[in-house]
């Protein structure tokens, strides 16, 4: 299904993207042939999720190059540098992995990730991803519906919010040794946001398991919110009655709110949010206009009916 609000995306935009990809491939091919060796393409065979069906809400958009999506990540647990995170995150051991469920739910405790995966059907969702730093990409995620997963733990009527926590391991996550943020990283959603069918838990991307720097083995994807809401390497999920104190909100409350919905009309206190730079685009491509709720307004705007979006940032 194509999301209606995304129909505004000009076909030219997509064509251009393909053009870039081809250009990159041409350059790579040229480089390879100059070196006199053409390595066999073994990447396809080794991929973990090649037959995952495309799920609802996936937009037919020009997908960002894997290289770009995988080597431009904000992962402050390792570093504030977006490319160094690729190498630094390699040391993270993602198996075995367990997730602790706490708080206002009937079924709490610690669960192995593989057991969680058994109970949730994998699908692919091609989502747009918009960072608060005004860049964006389109990523084919592999994972499952967050809401369906949460329901399995039978949250009680007291569960008004759900809080997610990233692994805390400063021996490996060396960025946690400095105090740029309060560790461990915490994010949260209101229960109705978490139950929305667009909210997604990813274990993979681009037909394969998540690269460590992209949040392996389990990360959140909330496509209508700024990227920092999509917390990585989740080890704990807690159902709460009170609004969780999230990491960025805690460090700079006037700049980063709890909701963090993508909104071109509400500027960050230090920069405009009206446009976004498309990752992988050539240097002569103008920025694209940012859409409210990142283009998912038709689906999620009703969650915020009656709320002042310039106050509840």
């Amino acid at each position: 299904m194509i999301i209606k609000t995304l129909s505004e995306i000009k076909s030219s935009e997509i064509t251009k993207e393909t053009h870039f990809k081809n250009r990159r491939k041409l350059i790579k091919a040229a480089a390879a042939s100059t070196a006199g060796l053409l390595l066999p393409d073994i990447s396809q065979a080794a991929k973990a999720y090649i037959n995952v069906p495309i799920g609802k809400y996936s937009a037919t958009l020009g997908v960002t190059d894997f290289e770009d999506a995988a080597n431009y990540t904000n992962y402050y647990e390792f570093t504030t540098n977006k490319t160094d995170s690729t190498v630094l995150a390699r040391g993270l051991k993602t198996t075995p992995w367990s997730v602790t469920i706490e708080g206002e739910a009937e079924k709490t405790g610690t669960f192995q990730l593989e057991d969680i995966l058994k109970n949730n059907l994998l699908e692919e969702r091609i989502y747009r991803f918009r960072c608060v730093e005004a860049w964006s990409m389109v990523v084919p995620w592999i994972g499952f519906s967050l809401g369906k997963m949460l329901k399995q733990f039978k949250p009680t009527s007291k569960a008004k919010y759900v809080e997610f926590t990233t692994l805390y391991d400063p021996d490996i996550m060396i960025g946690q040794r400095s105090k740029v943020l309060h560790w461990p990283y915490v994010e949260g959603l209101r229960m109705d946001e978490a139950m929305h069918p667009l909210a997604f838990m990813a274990t993979g991307m681009y037909d394969d398991i998540l690269p460590n720097q992209n949040g392996a083995p389990l990360r959140l994807v909330v496509p209508w919110k700024y990227g920092f809401k999509s917390i990585k390497a989740i080890v704990k999920i807690r159902f709460t009655e009170k609004m969780p104190l999230t990491a960025w909100n805690r460090s700079a409350p006037n700049e980063y709110g709890f909701y963090a919905n993508v909104n071109p009309n509400v500027s960050h206190p230090r920069w405009s949010q009206s446009r976004e730079r498309i990752l992988g685009a050539s240097i002569f491509t103008p920025k694209r206009q940012t859409e409210i709720f990142n283009g998912y307004g038709a689906h999620v705007a009703k969650l915020y009916a009656g709320m002042n979006l310039s106050k509840s940032i």
Partner: peptide, 15 residues
Amino acid sequence: GVITDQLGANPIETL
């Protein structure tokens, strides 16, 4: 870097 497209995912930012 510009000519050979080696400035990463966000070349304008790198520049």
